[in-house]
Design a protein around this nucleic acid. Structure first.
Lengths: 212, 212, 212, 212
DNA sequence: AATGAATGAGTATTCATTCAT
DNA sequence: TATGAATGAATACTCATTCAT
């Protein structure tokens, strides 16, 4: 009831953050707009002052998420110092680690709610489309450096990202923890094959935490 | 109003067929149970006499679809005469051909309705889970025959099926026809890499229609 | 909560009656569908089982109302015994009397709620369109009988009904009771003029209650 | 964002003009206050600085419209030179002509949007109330001049204006163009009857464009 | 085996209006 | 004069499912 005016930027983020949290707890469909505004303590209309629809919020969250993921990925992929082989090791480690850094694992858990499958699928599609060109460039670098042996780097990048993201997604495949771990163990040799490398270059013990 | 009694088997199929047709026209969510029964000309209650829920119908349709696809796949994979290399060529051709045989292309178009993404995702997951062991056996055969060079056949089979099914799905990736065709062209060399084969063994002209 | 099944005819009327009563108390727009079903004691869905929308209910009420009014009107207009002059006297008396018979004055009060102006306007338009041909036939009869002198009976009938219904409608013109009474007094001489009659044939004391 | 200060008179008119234009395009109810201010390029608050409510704007537009119509009407009705018969001919011609002069036909088209029926009805009621006394005076003049034969000139004026305005309104009666034209043809003889004149004095060819 | 009337939970969205600045 | 962020009330409609017959 008391009218609290905020910096529009701030208010927008506030709505985004709250929506994201609730989507994670109850799923997108199950979260009512009224849930969101009640939690923030603003009027229903305020929500619609900032976003045209509930869907637009979901899109904005995904876009934000995508940007968050793209940044470190492109930093590594575009690094001028490293060899392609080193980049791949880093990228794989990044993607495979459960812990994405300081608290981010919570921030994006919302996608793993089983009611968010569609949202999730859309995110993966967008990721593949935006990461693939960067990854293809790394592949090409690797070919020039003599470590990779590969034709059609862009197609392979897309195929790999697609398989990687969907296959290892427990929310999609309903893997148990053990099942997922087994599959993570196999990723190394799949990458080696796809990139035409010597076996063992991406052996699990070189990829998983604890290695250096 | 006229009460028409039918053979239960027949009535069940009638509901399944009608539901499938409508899912294809409007999508699963957008198809109301009332749409289905109205089209058939029976009462709402009749629907629930045969199925516990709308979801059960979707599951039944998917199961039916899965069975339809599994049959030719396992026939090829389990064939005692062919080499693994021959089997792979046939399987790839089967999956890549737009025309899945006698009229079936229509029967399963329903999955390509953009509102059926979730149904579609579920089908792919089930396909991967049931096809992978068969495909892995073919891989192992190929290794024994000296044509394939591969470790962890089951993991590779799963990974490949996942990538293949999701990546080439226009309803999921929103590919244009041209975009999809490009990607189909690249599949051959991806398979060669994954199976550790000589380049060119699965070149597009050996896979696509017209080759023998 | 107890499920009470009724004869569909009966249930339909029940909804219509309740809606009409509420429209009269609060106006069409101000009456929520939930108000209607709560009053009856059925579920929201029951309403929509019988009517596609709230508007359809309003239309049905108006149609019913129109039928109720058309019946006595056409009985008089089509009577084989009376002269046109006698018919006109009876019709004018009917329309001018506040009391439309056995309790009907309540039943159709809903239109006079100021929030029902649009509904009301639609009803008048429909009335004019359906009464005019009957009235024109009476005019023609009067001409044949030598009492009326009139060209273009249909146009005059439409014009007269329109003027009559709108002008004397207190909800539209916001007349006070006194203002309306004055105007009712003048109707007789207007009719005389329109029908080309001798003055005094429809003098107020021949039209209003108390006369015979 | 740039704050543009204008002459208050000007700004007020700007709002009125814009609102009128939008009411004509989408109807009163369908036009949101936000539509109006967006079109002008001012803030929501500015609207409410000039008008207490959306309804007040509608009232102001109608009042303006009424004034525009009243002026020529009263000029003719109050003219000292003409006979009542001449005045009536001019007035009828004015009202029946599709083209109300220099571009005004566009300015008031808004009323003919079918969603403005209520606005329209209100305007007609106000017109009747303000034109009737002027018209009654003309009737009385005609009686004195021996051309009209009429009792109760005010009542007849009100009745005539009401019938005329509602009956010939295509937005209210949903007349087709042809239907409306037929009715316009009949107006002359209705006026003759109401004013107790000789037939033919207001024959269509004396009223419609082309006559002098 | 079939009917069909009845249930009832569930919510995104609009928009006129206010008010602190 | 003007801004624009914030308010908050208000509701028609869908549809999967049930159940008495």
């Amino acid at each position: 009831m008391p009218r609290i005016t905020k910096n529009p930027q701030e208010r927008r983020e506030e709505i985004l953050d709250t929506a994201q949290a609730l989507f994670g707890q109850k799923g997108y469909q199950q979260t009512a707009v009224s849930d969101i505004v009640k939690q923030i303590g603003v009027a229903q209309g305020t929500f619609y002052y900032y976003f045209k629809s509930k869907e637009e919020v979901a899109d904005a969250i995904i876009a934000r998420h995508l940007a968050h993921m793209l940044e470190p990925f492109s930093k590594v992929a575009g690094n001028g110092q490293w060899t392609a082989y080193e980049k791949m090791k880093v990228l794989l480690r990044m993607e495979l680690s459960e812990d994405k850094g300081e608290g981010h694992e919570d921030a994006f858990q919302y996608l793993h709610h089983e009611n968010n499958a569609l949202l999730h699928q859309n995110l993966i599609v967008k990721m593949v489309r935006s990461f693939a060109p960067l990854l293809a460039a790394v592949f090409e670098q690797g070919v020039r450096e003599g470590d990779f042996n590969i034709k059609e780097p862009l197609a392979v990048a897309e195929f790999f990202l697609t398989g990687f993201q969907f296959w290892l997604d427990s929310a999609i495949f309903h893997w148990t923890d053990a099942e997922r771990r087994e599959r993570v163990q196999s990723i190394g040799s799949i990458v080696e094959a796809l990139l035409g490398m010597e076996p063992g270059m991406f052996s699990a013990n070189r990829l998983l935490p604890g290695e250096h």
